[in-house]
Structures are given as structure tokens and as C-alpha cells.
Amino acid sequence: MNQDLYTAGMNTAAGTLLLTAVLVVWRRELRAMVMLLACQGVALAALPIVDGIAHASAEVIGVGVAILALRGVVLPAVLLRLVARRGPARRGPARWVPARRESAPVVGTSLSLLITALLTVTAFAVTRPIVRLQATVGSMAVPVSFAVILIGIQVMATRRRALSQTVGFLMLDNGITSAAFLLTSGVPLVVELGASLDVLFVTLVLGLLARQVQAHFGDSDVGRLRELRD
């Protein structure tokens, strides 16, 4: 793989990461959000794969494939089940229909997009020391990772559905993983393994809790979880 292609590949992947993040902010259809997340996972996986091909490192490609499987397939699938599922099989009389759309947003879409823009700019501003330290193709794209991280938190903070929050969290995580891949070729395997497993488990836990929220509150709107306070 020549350098231009490598650069193009990396940049495309990074661009896709950011684009999907912005689109998640835009869209309010839950299923669409999950799909966008899957796309983001694919874009994320593209980073090590491109990197691995460029440096002819089977190990890195392998990691990329694993990422692809986890972030592009498994995690979105877990979330999709949450959207698709028609009521709890055994438990409780409360049969519920999963919500398909985000409920009334905390912040309007246009304002959300404005905030996203601001966060992206901020991300570019604050990553100067990192970019300065190492001016590689990957490092140049690191602001994108930070932007995705911040947008992930933004999604979590402005969306009300349990599912949307999970999507936001996974975006945040995608951003961090992408940073790892853009800066170096990923963290050591044992760390990556632990991190990925943790993410998987967190997603499962959130899915499970989301269902309990639905069962107890009759709705997956976590904005209603405001009974615990002083």
C-alpha cells in the first residue's frame, strides 16, 4: 500500500467516524442511530486494518477484524435487539412496546448540531499538544477522535432514551479506541482485550438495565429517572 492510499484510507475512516457521530446527533430514529453506530464501528475497524495493511502487520489486521466484529456487528446487534424486542418474554404483566424514536429532546436538533460544531472545534483546539508531538497521518486525525468522544458525551447528555444513551456511550468508546489507533497502533493486546470485554459487558449491562427501566417505569425514557435526589 502506498503512502497516499494509506493516508486516504486513514482520513476516510477518520472522516467517517466524525460524520457518523454528527449524523447520530441529527437523527432521532433509534434504529437509524444504531445503524450509524454500526457504520462508525466499521470505520473504526478500518483504521487498524488500513494501518495493518500499510505496515503489513497481521496482528494489527487481526485486531482490526476483532474490532469490526465487536463494534460493527455485535454491539449494534445487542442494541438492535433492544429496539426490536417485543415485550419481555416471561416477566411481568406490563407488556411494552419499545420506542422507535427519541422522545421530546432535551435540546433541539439545530442547537444540538451547533453544540456539536462547537465541540468539534474545541476538540481541534485542545489536541494541539498531541498533534504537535507527532505529526503523522494518524495523529493529524486525532482531533476527530476527541470530537467523537465529546459528541458521544453530548449525545448521552441530551438524549432521553436508554438506548440513545447507550449509543452515546459506545460512540465515546469508539472515539477513545480510534485515538489509540490513530496515535499508535493500538494499546497492548491485553489492555485492548480487557477494554473491549468491558465495553461489551457494559453494553450488555446497560441493555439489561434498560429493560428493567422499561419494566419499572413503563418507558425507556431515562430522563424520568429522577426519584433519587436530595
Binding site: I153, T158, R226
Partner: peptide
Amino acid sequence: TGSVQLYLVYGG
């Protein structure tokens, strides 16, 4: 307030 979104804003 008990709002998890607000709490996330603090974190963010």
C-alpha cells in the same frame, strides 16, 4: 436534580 443527563453535562 437527579437527572442523569445533567450529571453527564457536569462530567462533560
